[in-house]
Nucleic acid binder design. Structure first.
Lengths: 184, 184
DNA sequence: CCAACCATGTAAGCTGTTACATGATTGA
DNA sequence: TCAATCATGTAACAGCTTACATGGTTGG
């Protein structure tokens, strides 16, 4: 069973801080998670579906009359499967923001080894995609391109190179952590 | 009157090279424009709507029985309005790829001054968004964030910095061109 | 001749958007 | 008390995806 990115984001948020639907909307409005819309027409139906699917459960909070959504065991499992999936070249090419969202929710797994595996596939796919882009830019197909088109492609290449550099830096963070864990 | 990004992409392609619907699909399949899907269920309905809206016209080619889509005057005008619109902070934050697509289709206008205006708003919005992100990262809200979340944000920041650097470089290209034009 | 490709379309279903609607609570 | 905010929902619509369906052309 699986959901949309919005669904996974809601499960991940529910793990980090059980909240009402309204509170989730506020998160999408006021944080860099704002890529997701906070419209009621998207969130409330999504919460309903996740509850029906057994990934979330509405429970009364310490304050009565203020039920909040918690993630169930099934919800945590579904999120794990989603975040732990290797990063494909297609994902890098067409929805790299989703890959980064998955990285952010690796927190819910919190396993340095798994994080390093994720980053390795991320870097591999970014490099493959970069090769494809530079190869295309060097081909005769690109020679027919306008300067505008070529520049736009270079913008993409620059962005992917920044992502690769970021991922290499992130690797170091988790390699250190991994060694510290092993040492203690 | 306006369309979706897919619609504008089709108008832009039709200006660059009038083609059949099938040929447009091949472009989306085999070039970096592959962010758009090449599924028939998206392209043929879109072509139909654009034709009905008066932005495209199907005309027989040099080969008879092989009608191709051409952009009409209205189509060119609609594309111009779309590509020339200033780049907003929201666009940078949520759909920067669309901004880059618009940049690529500035070719159809081909006015260095307009291109420089576009790049200036692009850089301004990227910088505003970067300030927002770094401000958020420094706030106490981000202090509660996990290392994963912080790293994911840094990935975003690195990407936007690369885009800013790219845009500054692109400015120079068109400033040179602008001066050459003025000199001759 | 047969497989592969050219070429176009439609129908069902899902997601998300916008807009509307409702009502409770809370602070000035 | 009155505005703002909390809180949830629905209905209409647009867009895209997948899958199915159809038929023509072309090269081996």
């Amino acid at each position: 069973m699986q959901t949309t990115p919005l669904g996974y984001a809601l499960i991940g948020l529910a793990i980090a801080m059980p909240s009402s639907g309204y509170a989730f909307r506020k998160v999408f409005e006021t944080t860099p998670l704002g890529a997701f819309s906070s419209s009621p027409g998207s969130i409330y139906p999504a919460l309903g579906k996740l509850t029906k699917a057994g990934f979330l459960k509405q429970r009364p909070d310490t304050n009565p009359h203020k039920p909040v959504y918690h993630a169930t065991q099934a919800g945590r499992a579904a999120l794990s499967v989603w975040v732990l999936a290797p990063v494909s070249v297609e994902e890098v090419a067409n929805e790299i923001d989703i890959a980064l969202l998955r990285f952010a929710f690796l927190e819910s797994v919190n396993d340095p080894k798994a994080t390093l595996r994720f980053l390795a596939t991320f870097i591999g796919s970014v490099e493959t995609h970069l090769e494809q882009l530079t190869h295309y830019l060097g081909s005769e197909a690109a020679a027919a391109l306008s300067p505008y088109g070529r520049l736009a492609m270079q913008s993409g290449i620059a962005g992917y190179e920044a992502q690769r550099a970021w991922a290499v830096g992130a690797q170091q963070v988790f390699e250190n952590e991994h060694q510290r864990d092993g040492a203690k």
